[in-house]
């Protein structure tokens, strides 16, 4: 029975990881951009939701869109300030700039929300389903459902619509795409805002499972990075698979070997894979 339970845990963990990584996957695959403030946007997504629930007393499901909107706006601001670097495709500078943004956000959030751990309260987190010796919460079901729906939607938009074609054209060659009348800065802005919004959404869904801290950003993203590298950089389907894979690994390794060294073990695996197949992982 413990196997089934861990399978369920892995499924939920994995869909959470995949949800958090979705924005990054699109950003990287479609725009070839990086955002090292991703973890801080996750942190903010959770804290903005917590803040409006505490201060304005709004219910959990209202706090979700508020948080998504706030973080999306922040993402728009960040991207707007980086437009020149983005158009130059100056990845080194972009990495450092977003790292700097992340550090600013960590400091700002600590001042705004305080240094104490908080809980984002979702009513679904308290509703547990127990059947045949296994259990899970309705929040878990929500996370899994959202992950599947969002991944399917993103895949469809990228591969089957005109917007997707535009995004893919920009990823291929931004200058050429501009010649064909595509407004590249606008598309980049849209992708970045999408990234910020999805990570905020992921945060509001996943964060109720654990306490939240304003300092969690830098460590929170580690699994996102692994998923992106493992899933074949920028591949939407690959990220979903890698998310589930890592989720299963975390659940089983944590239960049967050692919970403290789960990330280390997963990372060791990624390192070995990278040294064996460095280019096979990257799409280009």
């Amino acid at each position: 029975m413990i196997l089934v339970q861990q399978f369920i845990n892995g499924l939920v963990l994995g869909s959470g990881y995949a949800l958090i990584a979705l924005g990054w996957t699109v950003l990287l695959g479609a725009a070839r951009l990086v955002n090292f403030a991703h973890g801080q946007l996750y942190m903010l997504g959770a804290f903005v939701a917590w803040f409006v629930m505490e201060q304005a007393g709004v219910p959990y499901f209202v706090s979700i869109p508020v948080s998504v909107l706030a973080v999306a706006l922040l993402g728009a601001f960040m991207q707007a300030s980086m437009t020149r670097l983005v158009m130059e495709q100056n990845l080194t500078s972009l990495m450092i700039v977003t790292l700097g943004f992340g550090y600013m956000l960590t400091g700002g959030a600590a001042i705004l929300f305080g240094g104490a751990p908080q809980t984002l309260d979702s009513p679904l987190q308290g509703m547990a389903v127990r059947t045949g010796g296994v259990w899970f919460t309705l929040q878990d079901v929500l996370i899994l459902a959202c992950a599947l729906v969002l991944f399917a939607a993103v895949w469809l938009v990228l591969n089957r619509t005109r917007i997707g074609a535009m995004v893919r054209a920009i990823a291929e060659d931004p200058k050429l795409a501009q010649l064909f009348g595509i407004n590249a800065p606008l598309v980049y802005l849209g992708i970045f805002v999408f990234e910020a919004a999805t990570v905020a959404l992921a945060a509001t869904l996943v964060a109720p499972r654990t306490p939240i801290l304003t300092s969690m950003g830098f460590e929170e993203v580690i699994l996102t990075f692994m998923i992106v590298v493992l899933g074949g950089i920028g591949s939407v389907g690959g990220s979903l698979a890698a998310g589930f894979g890592l989720g299963m690994f975390t659940a089983f390794f944590g239960t049967f070997v050692s919970p403290a060294y789960t990330t280390a073990a997963a990372f060791g695996f990624v390192l070995v894979l990278l040294s064996v197949r460095p280019k096979g992982l990257a799409r280009r």
Partner: peptide, 11 residues
């Protein structure tokens, strides 16, 4: 925390 904002902003 303020110093964090300064450091990040400088960068």
């Amino acid at each position: 925390d303020g110093d964090k904002i300064i450091l990040g902003t400088l960068l």
